[in-house]
Simulated scan of single mutants.
Amino acid sequence: MKIDLIKCHGSGNDFFIIDEISNTYGFTDTQRAELAKAICSRSTDLGADGILYILKSKKADANMRVFNPDGSEASMCGNGLRCVARYVCELLGLEEAIIETMKADLQVKKQEDILADIPTYLVEISPVSFDLIDLPLILEKETLINEKISKISEELSFTALAVPNPHFVSIVEKKHIRSDLQKNISEYLNGPNEFFPDGVNVSFVKPLKKGHIYVRTFERGVGFTNACGTAMSASTLVTCMNGLNEIEKPVEVYNNGGKVSCVVHEKNGKQSIDLIGNASYVFRCQLDVNMDNPIEFTLSKREEYQDEIKQYAKLQEHAQQILKECM
């Protein structure tokens, strides 16, 4: 089977887009999962943090489904949603759209470029829940907000929230960022454990200055990534809850892949977050794959988006300079 691929990224969190609106591939969910495991592996000629399948929707402009490199399906992906937002808006000739995801139909909008000639989109991150049953997190309490769980860490406090995928967020110091603590906690909570039966995204947040934070995330089903959009959104909300930043004011969020901007909103006791950042294309190619054994594939010549690559490198350079000064 021949499949058209676009390699894209949001904040260095990279994906393949597969358009099932314009193409009738007829994938089963098993095939979607097996294809993700085959082509997202970093040991292949491709490699990515996941596949973004774009399908028709009966209630929105398009439906986004996200499959991780281990074949699991994510309920949401903020960086991926920005890439899907761009693809759908350009495909349908729109400035804004509604994208159906597993848990919610979310608004996306084209924005002014975050840096010259870098396509930029705002995506809605919601719903937000602090109910542990929604993650799920197994504890004898209903919520966990800035508290310690001694069996996980004697030193760090965590906040657990779903946005709607599960996040476990700790505000930390420089020494924690530089240690193996996050790796050890993340690997424990994403293996057999008594707390998170389905695993969890684990983020360490280092405040830089008012309105600026650094976020590093171990993503469930992926591992450490350059960035995780829902994690940066959840982390921004947690810093607002702790008085480090303010609701309704933009927060610049730096990550190993670049930077985004997040704005937390609250209405009638419910929170949502705007995630604003790049939606960049890297290359396009055609995959010729044996769907009975997806690890058997060949690729056509890649057509690279050189201008987009060069422009995003400038944003990365700026972000790394800020981190160098503040970290």
Rank of each mutant, 00 (worst) to 15 (best):
I98K: 13
M102W: 04
M76T: 01
A104F: 14
L52Q: 07
N68I: 06
F67W: 10
K110V: 01
A116F: 07
K109T: 03
S75K: 10
S57F: 04
L52G: 06
C77S: 14
A116W: 02
A48F: 00
K110H: 02
K58M: 09
N23Q: 13
A116V: 13
D70F: 06
I114P: 00
T44I: 11
L55W: 00
E34R: 15
P69F: 14
L106F: 13
G26D: 03
R32Y: 05
K103V: 08
M102V: 14
K59T: 12
C77Q: 05
D19A: 12
G78L: 00
R65C: 06
S72I: 09
D61G: 09
I39G: 07
R42Q: 13
N63P: 03
V66R: 01
E20R: 06
T44E: 10
M76Y: 11
K56V: 06
I98M: 14
K56E: 15
M102P: 01
L81R: 00
D70W: 10
M64G: 00
R32E: 08
V84C: 04
Q111S: 13
I118N: 07
S43T: 15
N23T: 10
N23F: 15
D49K: 08
A36G: 14
C77V: 10
K59E: 08
V84Q: 00
A116R: 14
E112D: 11
S72F: 05
L55Q: 10
L91T: 08
E20W: 00
E96I: 01
A60K: 09
C83H: 07
V88T: 05
N79D: 08
G71I: 08
E112I: 01
K59L: 04
G93W: 09
R82S: 01
I39H: 10
I39W: 08
Y87C: 00
K59A: 06
Y25A: 07
D117I: 02
A48W: 06
T28Y: 08
T44L: 12
A60V: 11
N63W: 02
A33E: 14
S72D: 10
V84M: 02
K37P: 04
Y53L: 08
E73D: 07
D113Q: 11
V66M: 15
G71M: 11
G78I: 04
A116H: 08
N63S: 12
A33F: 05
G80Q: 04
